[in-house]
Structure formats: structure tokens, C-alpha cells
């Protein structure tokens, strides 16, 4: 029941455009992340702009949203904790679609104690509306384009 609800929610969220996924992305291949400063940001081909440690608005917001909604479990700067995996490692193999799927639907680990749960964020506007930003931030961290800590903002 719960997972059905979540899936419906995911569909709603996706339709609302909170996390837009172009049709060609559905294959689930890991796209390159070229950090092309001249191209538009989009979560699949160019999820962030980082220039000399400075980041675009979305990536900056992703940093903030991550540290507000995710870091209590996933640790500071995406480095992981004893509770949940390091997303800077996860995103080496998870693409945007797979990432969004986990965030929307959640997941329940069966580890040693079966006691860690990735919650569903389908009903949390503080995450759903900024899915792209959170992904962009974590992807920049994963690619080694961005160091730990609070990034500087690029001038607009």
C-alpha cells in the first residue's frame, strides 16, 4: 500500500515538473557531466556549473537543501555516516533517474539489523522542488569538481 502510494506520488511529482526527466533518459545510462559553463544546466547532461570553487545558484541551493534534508543520515558533504551510504560514492553509478527514484520512493535496507531506512521524500516540497539542485550539488562533489564545505556563489 505504502509503496503504491509513493509511486503515485512520484508520478504526480514528475508530472508537476518538480523533477523533469526527458524521455531519452529513461534508458538509465550514466551521462557524462561535462561542467560546461556555456551550456544551460540540466540534470542529465550538465547538472552543475563550477568555476574556481564557485557554483551556480542551483548547485548552491542543492548544497543547502542537502545539508537541511539529507545530511543527518548521509553525513556532511555527502561523505556518508554509519547510518547511510556516502552519496559521493553512490552517484558514481546512480544516474539522475535512479537517484530521483530512490528519493521519491525511499528504500528499506535489510542490513545486519534491518534498521536503516531511506525515507520517501515524495511529499516533502523542500526536496521535491529542488531535486535537480540536490543532484547537481552531489554530482559536482562526486566528480571531484567541488570540495567539502560551503561553496561560493558564481556571480550571476
Amino acid at each position: 500500500m505504502r509503496s503504491l502510494l509513493c509511486r503515485i506520488a512520484a508520478a504526480i511529482a514528475l508530472v508537476n515538473g518538480a523533477a523533469m526527466i526527458p524521455a531519452e533518459a529513461q534508458e538509465g545510462t550514466v551521462p557524462p557531466a561535462p561542467n560546461d559553463l556555456t551550456a544551460e544546466i540540466d540534470p542529465l547532461d550538465n547538472p552543475y556549473h563550477v568555476d574556481d570553487g564557485k557554483v551556480d545558484r542551483g548547485t548552491y541551493n542543492g548544497y543547502r537543501r542537502y545539508h537541511s534534508s539529507c545530511h543527518v543520515c548521509h553525513g556532511p558533504d555527502g561523505l556518508g555516516s554509519s547510518f547511510a551510504p556516502a552519496l559521493v560514492e553512490s552517484l558514481k553509478s546512480l544516474d539522475y533517474v535512479a537517484f530521483a527514484e530512490v528519493v521519491v520512493n525511499g528504500r528499506q535496507a535489510q542490513g545486519a539489523t534491518g534498521n536503516s531506512v531511506m525515507p520517501s521524500f515524495a511529499f516533502d516540497p523542500n526536496v521535491m522542488e529542488y531535486m535537480n539542485d540536490i543532484y547537481g550539488y552531489l554530482k559536482a562533489r562526486t566528480d571531484g569538481a567541488l570540495d567539502r564545505g560551503r561553496p561560493q556563489r558564481l556571480p550571476k
Binding site: Y66, H67, S68, D124, P125, N126
Partner: peptide, 20 residues
């Protein structure tokens, strides 16, 4: 500590700040 706007949604984190 950097505060920012958040929306309330029952049962979801209601934090609205990022800190290092």
C-alpha cells in the same frame, strides 16, 4: 549557519537552515 525558507509538510523534516 544559514537560514532559508522551508515549507511544512506533516511528518517531513522542518529544518530550514544549513550549518557547518
Amino acid at each position: 549557519y544559514e537560514p532559508f525558507a522551508v515549507s511544512y509538510s506533516s511528518g517531513q523534516p522542518y529544518i530550514g537552515a544549513t550549518l557547518s
